[in-house]
């Protein structure tokens, strides 16, 4: 029982990584009907930025902000910078090709992905980089019989806080309704007085910022990062958003968490070597049997 619960918490931890990255895919897809293949690389980019802040700012940060302050500064810098990168990327790689249809935009997204990945490699080198361990809390917390690391508690708390916040914005505020309306019918949304460019700006800042934040958390959790990791995380997060129903924001959260837990349980009880297989089997099954995903649109439209 104890082992199951621990695996469950491990699953929720990586599941919340997938969920946070999946939100970026889903928000952009919802509004632009574009799969932003470069999103995984924005996540990597954020992870490296956090790494750089921690490594080069080590003495300064701990002196001025303390251990926790350093964590906050690293995630903050990564999130803000990657939000800017996201906006610039939208201007350069996507905006010029929107009118050309969906396929050119996908090609452009793949191009942006390759560009970012190589840029990261050129800047930080092709080898693995290790997150400085002196910044990573290694305390353990006892939850009844279960032992989990303090870092996991922080990661889970932060992820759920962010997801809760985003859920509130999207489902409960008028601006959130504007985002959902834009996702459904852009032309009619503009008739409501919604500035579509503002909505696009919002999804291209918040999505990448969440990705970058996740990148820093992944770096702290696994301690090492590589310039290619965005591909794997990106693909799994994409699977998560399809599982939850692409374009659907609560769906991305649910899909990510379910995927993480399934992957962990599969790795623990079937075979760790096959854990990626479980993920993609799920993707295939969802695409065959429920292409709209768990929370995909169900409402029939009257014509």
């Amino acid at each position: 029982m104890q082992v199951i619960l621990e695996q469950l918490i491990n699953g929720l931890t990586i599941g919340s990584f997938y969920a946070l990255i999946a939100l970026g895919y889903s928000m952009v897809y919802g509004v632009l009907k574009l799969i932003n293949f470069a999103h995984g690389d924005l996540f990597t980019f954020g992870s490296y930025l956090g790494y750089t802040v921690l490594v080069f700012g080590a003495a300064f940060l701990t002196a001025h902000f303390g251990l926790w302050g350093a964590f906050v500064v690293a995630t903050g810098v990564a999130a803000l910078s990657i939000a800017c990168v996201g906006v610039v990327m939208e201007r350069i790689a996507y905006r010029p090709v929107y009118r050309a249809g969906r396929l050119p935009a996908v090609v452009s997204a793949l191009g942006a992905s390759i560009f970012l990945q190589n840029a990261i490699m050129v800047i930080w080198g092709p080898r693995f980089q290790a997150y400085p361990s002196e910044f990573i809390p290694d305390a353990k917390v006892m939850l009844g019989d279960i032992r989990i690391s303090l870092l996991q508690v922080i990661i889970l708390a932060m992820s759920f806080l962010l997801m809760g916040l985003l859920y509130f914005i999207v489902q409960k505020t008028t601006f959130g309704a504007a985002i959902r309306a834009t996702a459904h019918d852009r032309k009619t949304a503009s008739l409501m007085g919604i500035n579509i460019n503002k909505v696009i700006f919002f999804v291209f800042t918040l999505g990448p910022a969440l990705g970058a934040l996740t990148g820093v958390m992944v770096g702290m959790y696994y301690r090492q990062i590589s310039f290619t990791m965005g591909w794997n995380y990106g693909l799994k997060a994409f699977t998560a958003s399809v599982l939850g129903g692409i374009g659907n924001i609560p769906g991305a959260m649910v899909g990510g968490l379910i995927l993480g837990v399934l992957e962990m349980l599969g790795a623990a009880y079937i075979s760790a070597a096959w854990k990626d297989v479980f993920v993609f089997v799920i993707l295939i099954l969802v695409l065959i049997f429920r292409p709209t995903g768990i929370l995909g649109e169900k409402t029939a439209e009257k014509v």
Partner: peptide, 29 residues
Amino acid sequence: YDIVRRGISLSPEGRRVFPTLTVEENLNL
């Protein structure tokens, strides 16, 4: 979006309500 602000509003052909939003959310928008 600015034309609406200035006082011209269109009820489009085919209604174009947002089906996945509630009636109240539609009105709020």
